[in-house]
Amino acid sequence: MRIGVFIPELVRHLFKKPATVDYPFIKQELPPGFRGSPYLKPETCIVCRACERDCPAEAIEIISINEAEKRFKMIIHNDRCIHCAQCVDSCPTDAMNMDTKFEISDYDRHNLKMEWEYVRAVIKPKSAEPKS
């Protein structure tokens, strides 16, 4: 038991810069590999639907637009996305990627939707079955 055992620490910090950051005005640097929002590189997507199947939040939707032309549309519902990056892991051709955006709030959930319309790519996947 010592009275005022905290005082030296408190007074020392009185003359120090605050540890907190003025956040929305001063942005902090994100570490590399930060899991932000998922996005698609349409030129490498082979429409294997592994991402759609594995997405825990059912945020990925792949719609066939024209069967003959092999045109597809991928919609990522960012309002449902839980940013787990399982789609990136499931993708056999590295078509799904993560950016580092995290300030994606919006007044309307429809604005968070991201869409890509593309022709199916013909690439040999890295492995026969998508990795877990």
Binding site: L10, V11, H13, L14, K16, P18, A19, T20, D22
Partner: peptide, 10 residues
């Protein structure tokens, strides 16, 4: 302000 600076805040 003093209280905050004692606690290393802004």
């Amino acid at each position: 302000k003093l209280y905050a600076r004692f606690q290393n805040r802004m």
